[in-house]
Amino acid sequence: MDKSRTPLRKWLLVLFLISLHQIQINAVQISIALHVTYKTAWGMLHKIRQFISQADEHEKLSGVIKAAVELYARKQHSSNHDSPKERSIVIACSSSLCSASYFKFKVIPSAHLNERCLLRSGAAAFARNYVSDSYVNHIIIQPLYRMADSRLLRSQYKRSIIKLNACFKGIGATHLQSYLNYLCFFLNHPCLDPHSLLYELTSLCLGRPLSNNVLLPLAE
Rank of each mutant, 00 (worst) to 15 (best):
M1S: 05
D2M: 09
R5Q: 12
R9D: 11
R9K: 10
K10Y: 14
K10T: 13
W11Y: 15
L12M: 14
V14W: 02
L15K: 04
F16I: 03
L17Y: 08
L17D: 01
S19H: 05
Q22P: 09
I23E: 11
I25P: 07
I25Y: 07
V28P: 00
Q29H: 06
A33G: 03
A33L: 06
V36F: 04
V36K: 02
T37Y: 05
T40F: 04
G43T: 03
H46S: 08
H46L: 08
I48Y: 11
I52T: 07
S53T: 15
A55I: 07
E59V: 15
K60S: 00
S62Q: 08
S62A: 07
G63N: 03
I65D: 02
A67H: 04
V69I: 15
E70S: 15
L71T: 12
A73V: 08
K75Y: 12
K75C: 14
K75T: 14
K75P: 05
H77V: 09
S79K: 14
N80Y: 12
D82R: 04
S83H: 05
S83I: 09
P84Q: 00
K85M: 07
K85R: 13
R87C: 11
R87S: 05
R87H: 10
I89C: 07
I89H: 09
I91Y: 05
I91E: 04
C93D: 12
A100K: 10
A100R: 09
S101G: 01
F103T: 10
F103G: 03
F103H: 05
F103R: 01
K106L: 14
P109N: 05
A111T: 10
L113G: 04
N114M: 03
R116D: 14
L119G: 01
R120W: 10
S121W: 12
G122N: 00
A123Q: 07
R128M: 01
N129P: 02
I140F: 02
R146V: 00
M147V: 05
D149V: 04
D149L: 08
L152H: 14
L153Q: 03
L153F: 06
S155G: 06
S155M: 15
R159A: 14
R159W: 15
I161C: 02
I162N: 06
K163G: 11
L164C: 06
N165Q: 08
A166N: 15
A166R: 14
K169W: 12
G170V: 11
I171M: 05
G172Y: 14
G172W: 14
A173H: 09
T174H: 10
H175C: 10
L176N: 01
Q177K: 08
L180M: 00
L180S: 03
N181K: 04
L183T: 06
F185W: 05
C191I: 15
L192T: 07
P194C: 05
H195V: 12
H195Y: 09
L197Y: 10
Y199N: 13
E200M: 12
L201N: 04
S203R: 15
C205R: 02
L206W: 03
G207H: 10
R208G: 00
L210Y: 03
N212T: 04
L216M: 09
L216E: 11
P217R: 01
A219C: 09
E220Y: 07
